[in-house]
Write a protein that binds this DNA or RNA. Sequence first.
DNA 1: TTGAGTTTTCAGCAATTACTGAAAATTAAG
DNA 2: CTTAATTTTCAGTAATTGCTGAAAACTCAA
Lengths: 172, 172
Amino acid sequence: MGSRWGINRTVGQIYALIFVAPKPLHADDIADALEFSRSNVSIGLKELQAWRLVKLKHLAGDRREYFEAPQDVWEIFKSLAEEKRRREVEPTLSMLRAALVETPGSEADAHAQKRMQQMHELIDLSSTWFDDVQRLSPETIARLMRMGSSVKTVLDMTDKLKVVTGRKTKSN
Amino acid sequence: MGSRWGINRTVGQIYALIFVAPKPLHADDIADALEFSRSNVSIGLKELQAWRLVKLKHLAGDRREYFEAPQDVWEIFKSLAEEKRRREVEPTLSMLRAALVETPGSEADAHAQKRMQQMHELIDLSSTWFDDVQRLSPETIARLMRMGSSVKTVLDMTDKLKVVTGRKTKSN
DNA sequence: TTGAGTTTTCAGCAATTACTGAAAATTAAG
DNA sequence: CTTAATTTTCAGTAATTGCTGAAAACTCAA
């Protein structure tokens, strides 16, 4: 289920187990529950740590390493998005930028650059936007989301207000 | 580059070529340009059609099938999101729902359900929201995005207005 | 209806990715 | 320092996924 987030099946299973568990787990718990080899679990946990999806906990009087998932699901979502951005989005943007500074050698090249420019703009805009939104309080985000498409009405209303009071709109 | 959208390397390359090309291409063009076997290209194109990322075009006086990418990048983004939703998000939500109607057999089960409930809410909320936003005009979306986090100010302002005029807010 | 041009299918091979067990490394208590 | 508990590494193997060429199927013009 949902192995399309850049992590593979087993790592996903390990994460799911940690996510639903009522208390932190250690590697043997996991290997035991899922019937994976101990080494497989070790690698999986490393990967989950790299994605910052699990937190390492040391329990008093126990040398073993315990892992747990953040309690707040929105937190999880943010980590995932951040890592995905760092690993995939940013490298893509860099490559596009590199291609855009080349001098086009033909009509076709020039056209390709135009297309890459469009793609760059879209990706850049979305990721910057996501970054911004991420910084809002969870409540504000929830409010924004619950509004759905009626956000348009609010934007329109705001524009009108600004016109009336003689202020310039931010957009355009 | 960006093979994490659920399509593999070769399919990605095929798409990139079609995307930047100034005019529609046919399968042999692609096989030739990328040095893939004809069958590989055929399969790749099938997949791109399934994702609705390329459009089939029949050119007059030529029996071959030509393919091109939508001109509007936002269109591309929407197709991708829609398909991803249909293929990954919806099945995930169904599985979560199925797990949520089970009667928990233990404390641990009950806790697991609580967690799954949280996850379901988050995913459901985000995907419904995306659906809603998708229906806005490209300009409205662009405006919303360019606003970034200052959208909060607008929401706050709106709330105030509603209080003054005695109307209930939509949120909460 | 035939056949040339074109696309699709698929069995077999290649490449990649994932998993295991055993051994090595690390860690902390005694 | 030693030792036992624990984690990590890694070579070998298993499983999965991707690619190819050849043959089959399709399609349209004549």
